[in-house]
Design a protein around this nucleic acid. Structure first.
Length: 478
RNA sequence: GCCCCCGUCGUCUAGCCAGGCCUAGGACACCGGCCUUUCACGCCGGCGACACGGGUUCGAAUCCCGUCGGGGGCACCA
């Protein structure tokens, strides 16, 4: 049974990069009929907040990701919050003490900083010197009597090359001399990330660790710990990093990069799912529009591209448009659009919203675009744009809406076909056609020279509002 | 600085592992046209890349080496 995990730290909104990592874990798990585990890495008390965890879960679910074990649903390998696993960590720290894999180090941060600087200046890799490595019991006791605090460091073998096969990048080999003895337990007694992640992954029986490439250089340290504890080493897959336009790691500096921001900006989850999957992975065929379930079917971790990818906002926007105008079911789309309508102050019932969506969906890229495109369906007291007003400031234009008003003023209802019939008649009677015929009506009805099909608009808003707007224009331009 | 990863159109990528099917395919963006009462949608077309230099080979985007370039990492953060 394949078991993978997504292990975010709840320090803010779910970032696009993390969302992509979560997504690939999910897709892989489902493709392989394995399990996805959600684990919350909340050991950084300074930055972790409970409400962030809830937001994280909410975002993940919105994206369409679900998991088989996690803090919200439990599971047989819990607890799934690192803050609730401290006893477990101490147990394994004891084991490492017993086997002599870790030792006490009394160096102060200041001393270490000093060494770092010196090493850097001399062009050596800045790693721990091993000063406290072979302290005797007596020396340790003496230092502790002086009130010195200590950390526990892992005893790294000398000059050994750690080699592992990455499912995406191939064989990776790193010499342990690059990092030297690293800290496992802080001076306050709390264990460090590289240690707890190994304990958790091992105990939770994780078979494949799929994570961002920024963890690549941590991997040998973790392998050392797996070995020291006699744990089976999982397979690793490091996803290429996502870059901003300036080719540096995507971050807040690059604008809105949280999943939540896209959701608020009117992106639909399937498009995000599709778009995020496209960052580093590509379907076999020519079409890049591919539904979540198809992605899961087609996905193979070996096909993931291994070069970092610049996040393509324009393409994601286009994709979102495709989902809005071609893929989503109209009722479903309408339901998702309702919060946006309401937010713009456009009030109506479901059936009306649905008609509006049917009329405008082809012109939307995001649900935010509803504000502009749906306006004529809700607002009677709009401004006439300067270039639009010109169509009614001419005698010909004014006559058109006069004629139009004559024909509709006695009506109780109006349909698309009625509208077409009426405009045909005006065309014959006044001998105006094309823009000269339709623009004056459009401007009288919307105040703009562009927008939805007017026949559709007329049918949806109904005769009352049509009359009202024509009367208003007649008066305004009369 | 050191280590690791990477390098195909502006961007995302297919092709690379098993060299010829590649005058390098697709998608977004951009430009032009068509459709049309407008905008948009849609359709058609165009622009546009194997980072560079050496090898290996009858033949290299594909294999090897080097250079250059980009990214990530070098914490008592995760």
């Amino acid at each position: 049974m394949i078991r993978v995990r997504f292990a975010p730290s709840p320090t803010g909104y779910l970032h696009l990069g993390n969302a992509r990592t979560a997504l690939f874990n999910y897709i892989f798990a489902r493709h392989e009929n394995g399990k996805l585990i959600l684990r919350i890495e909340d050991t950084d008390k300074e930055r972790s907040k409970k409400e962030y965890e809830e937001m994280l879960i909410d975002d993940l679910k919105w994206l369409g990701i679900n998991w088989d074990e996690g803090p919200d649903i439990g599971g047989e390998y819990g607890p799934y919050r690192q803050s609730e696993r401290t006893d477990i960590y101490y147990e394994y720290i004891e084991k490492l003490k017993d086997t002599g894999h870790i030792y006490k180090c009394y160096c102060t941060p200041e001393e270490l900083e000093e060494e770092r600087k010196k090493a850097l200046a001399e062009g050596r890799p800045p790693r721990y010197s091993g000063k406290c490595r072979n302290l005797t019991k007596e020396e340790q006791e003496k230092l502790e009597k002086e009130g010195k605090t200590y950390v526990w460091r892992f005893r790294v073998p000398d000059d050994e090359v750690i080699e592992f096969e990455d499912l995406i990048k191939g064989v990776i080999s790193i010499n342990v001399n690059e990092f030297g003895d690293f800290v496992i337990v802080r001076s306050d007694g709390s264990p460090v990330y590289n240690f707890v992640v190994v304990i958790d992954d091992a105990l939770m029986k994780i078979t494949h660790v799929i994570r961002g490439e920024d963890h690549l250089s941590n991997t040998p340290k973790q392998i050392l710990i797996y070995r020291a504890l006699g744990f089976e080493i999982p397979k690793f897959a490091h996803l290429p990093i996502i870059l901003g336009e300036d080719r540096s790691k995507l971050s807040k500096r690059h604008g809105a990069v949280s999943l939540r921001a896209f959701r608020d900006d009117g992106y639909v989850s399937e498009a995000m799912f599709n778009g995020l999957a496209l960052l580093g992975w590509h379907p076999k065929g020519d079409s890049e529009v591919i539904l979540p379930e198809e992605i899961i079917k087609e996905f193979d971790i070996k096909d993931v591209h291994n070069a970092p990818a610049v996040f393509d906002r324009a393409k994601l926007k286009w994709l979102n448009g495709v989902y809005i105008r071609e893929i989503l079911d109209l009722d479903d789309l309408t339901n998702r659009a309702i919060p946006f309508f309401e937010n713009f102050g456009y009030k109506a019932d479901f059936d009306y919203y649905k008609k509006v969506m049917q009329a405008i969906r082809d012109s939307l890229e995001t649900l935010m675009d509803i504000e502009e495109r749906a306006k004529p369906f809700f607002t009677n007291d709009f401004h006439y744009d300067e270039d639009a007003a010109k169509w009614l400031e001419t005698e010909e234009g004014y006559k058109v809406i006069q004629a139009f008003y004559e024909k509709i003023k006695g009506l109780e209802t109006i349909t698309k076909d009625d509208f077409k019939k009426i405009t045909k008649e005006i065309q014959k009677e006044l001998k105006v056609k094309g823009k000269n015929l339709f623009m004056p009506i459009r401007v009288a009805l919307t105040g703009k020279t562009s927008g939805v099909d007017i026949a559709t608009l007329v049918e949806v808003i109904g005769i009352g509002r049509v009359k009202h707007r024509i009367e208003r224009a007649l008066e305004y331009f009369g």
